[in-house]
Design a protein around this nucleic acid. Structure first.
Lengths: 223, 223, 223, 223
DNA sequence: TATGAATGAGAGTTCATTCAT
DNA sequence: TATGAATGAACTCTCATTCAT
């Protein structure tokens, strides 16, 4: 996209407008796809339906996205960004302590799950077991998240002079926590639609995982 | 299948043989489907491929199974049976104590995951986000499993005079534990193929979840 | 297609009938495709049109042929067989002499072109410049034909104790003759529709190519 | 393109420059299309690819050319011009004699084929079996070429007092010669990539066609 | 003149499912 | 019971062409 520039290096007004419109279309299509995927499922949402829902032609969808895979991959990326920043902010806010860790957990249930149930559906349901390409992306996304959790854990431990028991412990904890997030969200969001009790449920889930963490530290510091 | 009976109420030898053969075919097809679904994925395995792999005709597959959905549903049922009895036995063996609970966890990683990686793939990957019907079955299967875990937990607690902190606690714990099982298996079986270290990993995961359980009991009994 | 056999090794009547029907369908589809390709052109004939013309479903076409490429490739093979045997017979009939060579030339124009104008269209027009796969097949077909011509030429020469002037001569002659056949057929069949004069035209073309042959022999033997 | 003129009837300097630029763009696009068609094939080259290769927008391509057909038609015209003048010059240079005819043949292989393999690909491969419109143009181009050959032949004969045997002879010879050119070029340029031996091959092909010509003259004049 | 986003008809291909034999 | 040919709807993706700016 080699947008023409004015002498002063800025984009011309019309170029700016076009760029804005393009970005807008892109987001519109993405949003429509998210909605459809979450509601009808990835395979049952055809490109034509997505085009109709975004009020553009099929060709336009293909102008903005390489193919259907690309659509869900972009959605995953976006979702990954939102999730990680949501949890990251909550963690940082409390100074990288065990309290921050706990708050990040609450943020997952009370903020992320509640505000972005469709993003949850994409990552925990619709992107599972699709093409190799999508699966690869999914792995990378989860790797980033478990990496985050792990790093956070290490920071907390370092600050408090704690160490993990086994060679895999930190990683296994991180993976387990992601598992808890995933399944609890899945259960109460998609299967029981218990959104109104999610706060209470989240509290328990977080208490559970904090207990788990302590159990794998050499010197348990209760919270 | 209204098998003809002899006067004494028993099946004739040939009828018996036919029944055996029928059962055998059924299992052959199911096994072929399991293998294919696990290896190539549900959507990329066509009924024709399944028929070829089982060395029967397409029509025969439809004789034994209502449709493709039914195939994965039967697989899920079978898998559910194996999983539940594997864990159940381990639990019972140790007299419904916390130790039994722990051993059941080990059984998941060291027995089930190692011996039935394809069943893991079916339930944790291939059955996700398919038709409403499959999803419904999946929910029921998970409900049974979390129910098991929950009941086991309650038994242990009752024996030891312990109670859970919150109204949802027992259920949330059960769901969380399933989440840990699921994601840890997924991570190390499908993504990292760390089958050789699964024992160590399982140990950590189980330690983690036991810690979590204790954290939600009113009087923690260490293990 | 492992057709069940009777004890005596023969196929059962019903199996035979099915095989016949299958062969018949195959030929029906192929014939419809040939007609359409010749009339409308390869790219303008859709698989649906071919299916309609053969009075079967689209799926049936794909049951008998791997894809659209395969359809034209089978057509080329068939055409190659007809062409080579038509010319081969004419040549052999006259005892592998220069006279036989001449008669083979006449056979091309008076027999092949007249009776199979559609096959001409396939090989000289519709199969040109398509996919790599088709092009590869086309090359092989032409190689076989030039090979035939060349071998025929060598036989005649050997019988008469003649040799070719240059290292490439025999091959270049063969290629040139194919070129003459091709373009003359194209010109008078597709562009001028001079089918009624094709006999006269063929006579001239053959006289032309025989003169050419003689010019590249070290001792010219007139015909 | 109604270029504004100055009072004295000449174009203004800036109009001249614009006209130059326009001509340049036109040629750039045409060259890019030729390259792409020859390399990837007509159908596999999209208008977008052509635009990218010429470093202009898709719209610009449509400004200079009516449609995709037009692109290949212009290419054919250009190619026809180059071919005819190349062969024509060689013929004229030797005073419209049989020697000139031979030299024209050499010019085809040693000059045209070697220097413009892409033009060969366009006319002998990529323009075959496309739309009716393109096919019509192709016929006209070949008609011009065979007309040239025929006229040249007639001139030579007239000069030497020779006559053709049959009513179609002159035309059939011309068509046959085009066939030889076409197929030999195709075989050794596209299929065997024998460009380094094309001189030798061309010599044989020309010797062949001269022999053919003589065979259809009432009094053969050897060369 | 030039741009490039947008269109939308149309293509090839797949595959779950059926049913006459 | 078993076969496997047949169906046809549905899907993804391409691309020549247009047109507002």
């Amino acid at each position: 996209m080699p947008a023409k520039k004015l002498k002063d290096g800025k984009l011309s007004p019309s170029a700016l407008r076009r760029q804005r419109e393009r970005e807008h279309r892109y987001q519109t299509i993405l949003a429509a796809a998210e909605k459809l995927f979450a509601k009808e499922g990835y395979h049952k949402s055809s490109m034509e339906q997505i085009a109709n829902a975004s009020e553009v032609s099929v060709g336009a969808v293909y102008f903005y996205f390489k193919n259907k895979d690309d659509l869900i991959i972009q959605l995953m990326d976006e979702m990954g960004y939102v999730l990680r920043s949501t949890l990251g902010k909550a963690f940082i806010k409390h100074g990288a302590t065990m309290e921050g860790f706990k708050q990040a957990g609450y943020a997952f249930f009370e903020d992320f799950c509640v505000n972005y149930p469709e993003k949850c559906a994409i990552i925990f349901r619709e992107s599972v077991g699709k093409s190799t390409h999508v699966e690869q992306h999914r792995k990378e996304l989860f790797d980033k998240c478990t990496g985050d959790v792990r790093k956070a854990l290490m920071m907390v431990c370092e600050n408090q002079g704690l160490t993990f028991k086994g060679k895999y412990s930190a990683e296994v904890i991180a993976v387990s926590i992601m598992g808890i997030y995933e399944r609890v969200a899945y259960q109460y969001l998609f299967w029981q639609d218990n959104t109104h009790d999610i706060k209470l449920i989240g509290k328990d889930a977080v208490a559970f995982l904090l207990g788990g963490v302590n159990n794998l530290l050499n010197e348990a510091a209760c919270t």
